[in-house]
Write a protein that binds this DNA or RNA. Structure first.
Lengths: 414, 414
DNA sequence: AACTTCATTTTCGGGCCTCGAAGAAATTCG
DNA sequence: CGAATTTCTTCGAGGCCCGAAAATGAAGTT
């Protein structure tokens, strides 16, 4: 059943991983500093570092800027990631755009291609072709990276198939159904990972705001859809061990408003931009939702509500109530201390807040533990990219580089 | 931050723990068998076993019954837990009873005391006194165990305080508020753990039904309360990393029926015995709930519904709907493959099932992944006890015995 | 009765990794 | 220039695991 035997190999892997992860979250550091952070002895750090240097995974930085107060003693030689050690390609798929980025091993953006996506995009090209094409472009434009490209990671919206080779369902037209991750892996010869956008939001906010790094946060995206990712004490939990949830399609009211997904009564049908719009304009809630809401139209609606417009306010009230009861139901299973609203809807938090808090107050756990802190962060792009990047680079650290054999087996590249 | 250094000590701990856990779930086994199950080499198993034998944690069994077909070769000497190596005390607190059990290290029940609990019990005695008293009784009645009693574990209902020293809220009158776990630990000088009943149900069913052991199961208790525990691929997840949820007090309908907890619209207010009773007798849903429902009255109601009685059927329908929508909302965050109904309500699963399935069918995830399998297991006592016991003994294995120093440091007891 | 067969268990030597202590290196301060 | 100070490396000891070989114990065979 469980094969978790520990031997000297796993010890090395664990401790190498510890050093890489300290480097990942703390930036270039001295060996002494690493020894302090990881808890390893100086001797071990030195030994491991010699391997890592020989394998060209890290490199010594000659800066030695000595910005610290104490100016005595032998100056520390900082060690940081060797930028050329690996590259990763990151694809962020959205309803209306693909953003393909090439990032080096130290986390520096090397190249980026953005392409518009329309509802007909995946009718003309299959997702597999589309992604393969963009990956090829990245490779061609940075030839030296093509050699050492190690991984591809894709951020998507929807429900993953059980083997993570594609999507079972997605709000992005034409994306579900094909196993594009599998195809892309075959075409490129690289491992391809699929991540839900909501999960990456949770991951990304951890890296974005140090105060939230170790607390428990539920990150809720409000915009063209509604999504949630959970990060509890630094661990990501949730559906399929994936940390993402189908929060947007959690039922709010039985037989309620029609959602884009085809079901009725989803939170999204009340709280996504199209839902708020539908309510505000008193369109019957069983009317099929608009395919896309322009940003400025949503912004205008916020301003109308802020100015006191009755109908617009009503739309945001219903949305806040849907989110609030959804959160209250989520709180029966998780206990985050903070709730972070991101995306276009974050701008309107003040409009949502009263209804959210009212809904939360009517739940037992909030009555006993108090309300979680509700914060807003308008930008959702940066956390998603950062989450995707950190997740992918950390996986590279642990899976590929921590496990390398030690000793004299130096790998050399021209 | 993270001090997870791996050294030879952690290797030994890991591998000793592996062997103990194999013994825990597989019963007495030969060294060869353990080597196969754990993945360790024969040499290592022998070495570890020598330590464990010297420390009197395990013992060789002289049975050698050779029940297997092959009768050639050196007969295996089975190794099993040394029963006297440790004892644990398990306290199961219920609305109307305390069950205190003494169990030896191999998991055999040695002694048991049952005491009735009434709503006034904890008005006369403090919880701390009450539990200390029962623990003393167990110790006195089995003097040889008093020496090696290592842990106390308590199964409770309600919301744990953040430091797990007591309860913030509980349906058991007078139990919340005091930090009885902390007091009991001081009085007895033993570590005391508090577990939520729902979590133990999830833990217990894993050990009870081998088919469910490694699948993802949501265990729902339906009876005097409604509770849920989650066990996903053998890992227990949920609130406070505790694996238990406040499912029963998840909101079903805003401003709905009055619940025992004082809030309105909880699932429990519709699906616990008192809720079903209230609906069936057309009592207004804001009427304060009955403090306790006799088992035979609930049974009679089931029979009336089975016989086709309109009002009773209506009660079970509403209950099924509340459970169904609750599950549908839970499924937006977790993806168990099985749902197990336990407790008195399991008897009535056929009455609940149509409404549960209807509610689940209206959710996106069920539409895409299909409905989870819904099963029933009428007895909830056995899983709780078993979960509490296995959880506690496994913790003892890993925390206390896997970490013991090896070598010549033999601990001896008269 | 001695020998073969076979499965289980133990012993032995080699390898790997971490650690503490002592030594080497690189600066600043007096 | 030497003392002080901080960082980094080297070295031997101690642990643990593993594979291979040897020992053990029982049943079948000659």
């Amino acid at each position: 059943m469980t094969r978790n035997v520990s031997d000297s190999d796993s010890v090395r892997r664990q401790n190498r991983g510890l050093i890489l992860s300290a480097l990942r979250s703390g930036g270039p550091q001295s060996r002494t500093g690493l020894a302090g952070v990881t808890g390893l002895s100086h001797a071990s750090v030195t030994a491991i570092m010699q391997d890592l240097l020989a394998q060209r995974i890290v490199e010594e930085l000659t800066s030695s800027e000595r910005t610290d107060g104490r100016m005595r003693g032998r100056p520390a030689t900082l060690v940081g990631f060797h930028r050329g050690a690996a590259y990763v390609a990151l694809l962020e798929v959205d309803v209306n755009r693909l953003r393909a980025s090439l990032v080096d091993y130290s986390g520096v953006l090397v190249d980026r291609i953005e392409t518009a996506i329309s509802p007909s995009t995946f009718a003309q090209t299959t997702p597999s072709e589309f992604f393969t094409l963009h990956l090829e472009s990245l490779r061609e434009r940075t030839p030296q990276a093509a050699q050492t490209l190690r991984r591809v990671a894709i951020s998507v919206q929807g429900i993953l198939s059980s083997d993570s080779s594609g999507l079972k369902w997605s709000p992005i037209a034409g994306l579900a159904g094909s196993s594009f991750a599998h195809d892309l892996a075959e075409n490129s010869g690289l491992p391809v990972s699929l991540y839900k956008r909501g999960r990456l939001l949770a991951e990304g906010t951890r890296w974005l705001d140090p105060a939230l790094h170790d607390s428990s946060v539920a990150t809720v995206f409000v915009g063209s859809t509604v999504a949630m990712g959970l990060s509890l004490h630094g661990h990501i939990t949730g559906r399929s061990e994936g940390g993402a949830t189908e929060f947007g399609h959690m039922n709010h009211v039985p037989n309620g408003a029609l959602c884009r997904c085809g079901m009725r009564g989803c939170i999204e049908a009340y709280a996504a931009d199209y839902g708020i719009l539908r309510t505000s304009y008193s369109v019957p809630e069983t009317t099929p939702p608009a395919p896309a809401v322009p940003a400025q139209q949503f912004e205008a609606l916020i301003q109308r509500a802020e100015a006191g417009d009755r109908d617009a306010t009503h739309g945001f009230n219903l949305a806040g109530r849907a989110i609030g009861y959804g959160l209250s139901r989520m709180l029966a299973m998780f206990d985050p201390t903070h709730i972070l609203i991101v995306g276009p809807g974050a701008r309107a938090l003040d409009l949502f807040r009263p209804e959210i808090e009212a809904a939360l107050s009517s739940s037992l756990v909030c009555n006993i533990n108090g309300l979680p802190k509700i914060l807003a962060h308008p930008d959702e792009r940066e956390p998603i990219f950062r989450g995707l990047m950190m997740k992918t680079l950390s996986a590279l650290d642990q899976t590929d580089f921590a496990a390398l054999e030690s000793g004299s087996s130096v790998q050399r590249r021209a």
